[in-house]
Amino acid sequence: MRTFLIIAVFYLAGLAALSFGISLIITAGLGAGPWDAFFVGLSESIGLTVGSWTFIGGFVLILINAMLLKQKPDFSALITMFLIGSFIDFWMLIVLADAVPASFVQQAVILTAGILCCGAGIASYLQSSFARNPIDHAMIVFHTLTGKSLAFSKTALELMILVAAFFIGGPIGIGTLIIAFLIGPLIQVFHRPVTAFRTKLTA
């Protein structure tokens, strides 16, 4: 029970940090990651909050992933998407509601803080194997169906969503490129110490 509770804390803290990072990146206004830019574009063009579209997008992906693999939908992943979506709305609509960067320097600082939070949050959230993000699962599905590497599968999916985000007016900019190149290495940087800390607590 103690181990379960500790891992649950890492899971929830990771999702909170990840969603805060996403919210900071969007607030910075220098471009968001492909999926986040897509959800922001949907929010601005159709309505509903970014968090709502994050949840809806996750639900649709769960169905698509299951259909492509001819398996039962993993609806437990909706818990993760609901938490991420709820956290994003909390950060953006309450905590960061009046946060408007006044200069490029402020934008750069907020963007950097956001990327760091995302890296640390993902590293923490991955300590649990419970209810994995359907966006990450989509990469596995693409890899399984095409036989391509995970890196290629991830890149291909990100590019497709990036194009979709562009056409619906999502926030794409220099930040999008920075995120694309830095988020992977940052997750790796944070993953080792976070895992060591979690192992020490659960030993």
Rank of each mutant, 00 (worst) to 15 (best):
I7P: 09
L12H: 02
L12I: 14
L18E: 05
L24E: 11
A28T: 03
G29D: 09
A37K: 10
F38E: 11
G41A: 06
S45Y: 04
G47N: 09
L48P: 03
L48V: 14
S52V: 15
W53M: 04
F59Y: 12
N65S: 10
Q71C: 13
P73A: 03
D74R: 15
F75R: 12
L78A: 06
L83W: 01
G85W: 00
S86E: 11
W91D: 01
M92N: 05
L93E: 12
V95D: 02
L96Q: 01
A99K: 07
A99P: 00
P101K: 00
S103D: 08
Q107N: 14
Q107S: 15
G114M: 00
I115S: 06
C117V: 07
G119M: 02
G121H: 03
A123Y: 00
Y125R: 03
L126T: 11
Q127Y: 10
Q127N: 09
A131E: 05
P134A: 00
I135C: 02
I135G: 02
I135V: 05
H143N: 15
T146P: 00
S149T: 14
F152H: 12
A156V: 15
E158M: 11
E158K: 10
V163N: 04
A165F: 04
F166G: 03
F167S: 00
I168W: 03
G169T: 04
P171L: 02
T176R: 11
L177V: 14
I183A: 08
I183E: 06
I187P: 00
V189L: 08
F190P: 06
V194R: 07
T195R: 10
T202H: 09
